[in-house]
Amino acid sequence: MALQSAAIQPRSSNLSRILSRWAESRNALGFGFMLPAAVLLLVFLTYPLGLGVWLGFTDARIGRPGIFIGLENYEYLWSDAVFWLSVFNTLLYTISASILKFVLGLWLALILNQNLPFKSFFRAIVLLPWVVPTVLSAIAFWWIYDAQFSILSWALQQMGLIDHRINFLGDPTNARASVIAANVWRGIPFVAITLLAGLQTIPQSLYEAATLDGASRWQLFRYVTLPLLTPIIAITMTFSVLFTFTDFQLIYVLTRGGPVNATHLMATLSFQRGISGGQLGEGAAIAVAMIPFLLAAILFSYFGLQRRKWQQGGGD
């Protein structure tokens, strides 16, 4: 009896000692708290990403697992004119839409930063395009760009500016401009509101000091607003570029990549080849091909724009 209890006791106290050590350890506790988030990230981000990269190296099709074929998919894409067209389209789409979003968004932010009547009302209104689900606004744009019932064509005709309807989505150049316009409309609120938040962190006294120093309105913008806003601009535009580069919904609703692939982006092409066409491996390879571009954008913004010498050093 005595022997038995002596044999059991150390074991249970060992267990409780381990448990209590775990409960008191900062590292174990921190790990425990991170675990749920880590599981979510692993399951919904890391696993699909890894699977995508893996599929890119296989000839998987829908319903067939496929085998490892090395770089064959990429070799095929390298000589695929449509793939290169989609790369060109994506770059054109991203660069022109981002520039427009930046210029117009900054302009809007500067206007909203003034003391306007009904200021908060306008700020709320501006967010609308961002709040509406993309597919819904894309359908609205589909009607705006409709070959027969386009309100734009109708309005311009009524004003006597054009004499026949504009073929918005049927002509390659028009289609590209149209989808870019729709993307810009949708993306401006994000840029405007984040830049507005940035503008409001600039102390009024800096503008007053610069005014007394003799700065004109343009010089206030050039020497005070712009430099102090650069870190926010970098972050905002990085996100904006990433959103635009990976855009799918707008194109899919408006043009499905047409006409003659003129508006096919890498994302839509990847979906078309991988899901609609069933070539999972090839679709995945196209998607993976987007990663270098995205990484380049992030690195450029991180090293080029976000870190400013004047932001470093002692705090306040």
Partner: peptide, 20 residues
């Protein structure tokens, strides 16, 4: 206009341009 008045001001929070 303020800049034509030829006055210089020192602000309570100094209002130094942080990026210069």
């Amino acid at each position: 206009a303020p800049k034509e008045r030829d006055v210089a001001m020192v602000f309570q929070n100094y209002a130094l341009y942080p990026h210069m």
